[in-house]
Nucleic acid binder design. Sequence first.
DNA 1: AAGCTAAGTGCAATATTATTGCATTTATCT
DNA 2: AGATAAATGCAATAATATTGCACTTAGCTT
Lengths: 139, 139
Amino acid sequence: MVQESIRILHTQGYKATEPRKLVLEVLEEIEKPLSPYDIQEVLRAKGKYLNHVTIYRILDLLCSLNLAHKMLSGGGFVKCSLDPVEGCHRFMVCQDCGAIQEFADEGLCQRENEFARNHGFHTEHHLSEFSGLCSRCHK
Amino acid sequence: MVQESIRILHTQGYKATEPRKLVLEVLEEIEKPLSPYDIQEVLRAKGKYLNHVTIYRILDLLCSLNLAHKMLSGGGFVKCSLDPVEGCHRFMVCQDCGAIQEFADEGLCQRENEFARNHGFHTEHHLSEFSGLCSRCHK
DNA sequence: AAGCTAAGTGCAATATTATTGCATTTATCT
DNA sequence: AGATAAATGCAATAATATTGCACTTAGCTT
């Protein structure tokens, strides 16, 4: 929910400006990875305008608050749909329709931490991305 | 080993050209994510020159053969050190020294496939990246 | 409700990264 | 060694990203 992101912006001392709301709305609506210029394009089609510099800065901020995420492959941005978690981002991406779905799995985190520890590595952040076919496209 | 990558190039019908060897050597030597221009810089320091277009094309090819991988975060390229596996790339990256280490974990794949299946998603590729501290930097 | 002020945005300029078509070179096969 | 398809370099251009500064606005304060 955009409303929830706005709340978090406020509690962190950031303003809930019109441009920020617009970017959040676009990401929430499209649910696919979008580049800064993609976002600008979507807005233009709605008769709105944001300078690309502004979009870059907003995405930086959202990512720093874990409200958005820059996708592993492709590099587009998506809105995080789960409670923001520092340093753990997991997504499934449909290679057909491009739809993304965020997920979390505590067991997976534990298993990964353990695996890393066994190799002398001290894990702080987990990123993972599965690509494949979503239920709609797989049949 | 660069030699092994060259063998794979041959078996796939690609030439083992000087530029390709150079890029493979740089990636193997540095063991950190490098952008195309980073690679050009490293080569320049060794008195070699490759056009950036060439480097882009070589990296595209290497990635398509799973001999290299474009990192999830940061976007740099690394040489894959394990047997090339279609669609499964896992790395640990030290956030201190930048060193990367590829790994594989069959159990993790299974667990991830199962998790996805339970959510109606049919997984084909897995990417994951842990960032944290390697054994040298963690103490 | 109007005014204040720090935070945020837009703009212009510039830097960095990536792509394309074509002429030239080179690895591999005969 | 020579033929030839594949690969590279070059020049031009496109796309993406960053910076400093002037102007605007959200959310206080009264």
